[in-house]
Simulated scan of single mutants.
Amino acid sequence: MGFDIPPSALDSISSDSRKCIERLKAHQLEKVDISGRPSSRLAAVLVLLYEESGKLRVLLTTRSKSLRSHPGQTALPGGKVDDVDVDVIQAAYREANEEVGLPLDSPHIHTVCLLRPYTSSSRLLVTPVVALLTDTSILRNLTRCEDEVDRIFDHPLEAMLDPSLASEEPLVKKGSEDWLYKSDYHNFTDILVPWIGNSGYRMHRFRSSASPIKGLTAEILIMTAAIAYDRLPVYEHYAPNQLTKFKDILRYLDAEHAPNQSGTSTPIGISAHDQVLTQ
């Protein structure tokens, strides 16, 4: 589902970046209907792209270490859909405004497309909203919400496909609490996820200038980059036997909520999926 972007907005970026945005704009969503889901189970994140030195970058945050869920972890601005939100798009922009002070209704921010929903560790259905920022001076005026965000930073989008492209970034020191791994730019761990029929799951981690980009945030950015640059990552994206279609994952999620033989719903507990998404 593409959105109208003024030609002047695309004229303001390089031809390579313009091609990336046009591919995202033309992206066709996997057809899965979640309109009947309660809004309390829906969330949205904003994938805000902008160009710097001819390359697309994405805005990220490090969550406050005082938060109860996923403290100190990298996140895209976003959160649960509220009653005041007319849709997931409004929810993504509202959360970005609350978390980092991104202005609402700016003529320099253009919605590009939606990606298919992802399932969070708490079983929320998270819809990524991809947007293009054409006036980067707005970034200088961003203000983090101290209760929710410890740091605002960014990362080259293409480095999600080829992690070595981050070599020129001011990356955190190897061996520090933000990159404990021996690899220079990227590593992963494979597990089996019981609640998705023992599907494989590959937890990717990317070294950045702040906290590691991993879990759900990494998954969303890998997909965004793959569509934008029209190519696969240089590494193997998925674990053996990993479910990649949202409709298949949703089927297991529905089964988890279905009444069991006693007539009660299956409880949602902490599973390996919850653990891997927070490592």
Rank of each mutant, 00 (worst) to 15 (best):
A226R: 14
R63I: 09
T189L: 13
P77S: 14
V45C: 08
I21K: 04
T143A: 04
N97C: 12
K214D: 03
L161N: 01
G269A: 09
S167Q: 12
A75L: 05
P77L: 06
V86A: 13
L250V: 00
E168K: 11
A131M: 07
P212C: 01
I21S: 06
E256Y: 13
A239K: 05
I21M: 08
D274Q: 13
H108F: 15
D154P: 03
P117V: 09
H257R: 12
S183G: 11
T217N: 01
R68A: 14
S199L: 00
V32T: 15
M1Q: 12
L250I: 01
A91I: 09
V234Y: 03
Q261Y: 11
T266S: 14
V129H: 00
K245Q: 11
V58F: 08
V276P: 05
G175M: 08
V81F: 05
L76G: 05
I196V: 12
S208V: 03
N260S: 09
P170T: 00
L124W: 10
H108A: 13
S53A: 11
H257S: 12
Q242V: 10
E169M: 14
D184T: 02
K31S: 14
Y235L: 06
V234K: 09
P7D: 15
V81R: 08
M203W: 01
G54V: 02
E51Q: 15
T74D: 01
P77G: 14
R57T: 00
A218C: 00
S120W: 01
H70Y: 12
K245G: 02
R251T: 11
A75W: 09
P233S: 08
L114H: 11
T224Y: 01
A26P: 00
V276W: 09
P259G: 12
L102T: 13
G263A: 13
F206G: 06
V126W: 00
Y238A: 15
L232M: 10
A226N: 08
H257T: 04
M223H: 10
L133Y: 04
K182S: 12
G79V: 06
G175N: 07
K245H: 12
S35T: 14
K247T: 10
G197A: 11
I196K: 05
H27E: 07
S40W: 05
S69N: 13
Y229F: 15
L67Y: 06
V81D: 02
D248T: 09
L67S: 11
F3D: 03
Y50H: 13
T217H: 00
V84H: 07
E177A: 07
W195H: 04
I138G: 06
L132F: 03
R144V: 07
R207C: 01
E219S: 09
R231G: 09
V172Y: 01
A91P: 10
A96N: 05
R202T: 01
V149T: 11
T61P: 03
P6H: 07
L49C: 10
S208W: 00
P71H: 04
M223T: 06
S120T: 15
M160Y: 11
Y50W: 10
T127I: 09
S120I: 10
D135L: 08
H108L: 07
I268R: 15
S106T: 03
P240W: 09
W195F: 00
T74E: 05
S35M: 05
Q275S: 13
I138Y: 03
G200M: 06
P71T: 07
K55Q: 15
I270E: 13
S8Y: 02
Q261W: 08
T143I: 10
H186Q: 10
E169Y: 00
F188L: 00
S176W: 12
D274N: 14
L216W: 01
L60V: 13
S183Q: 15
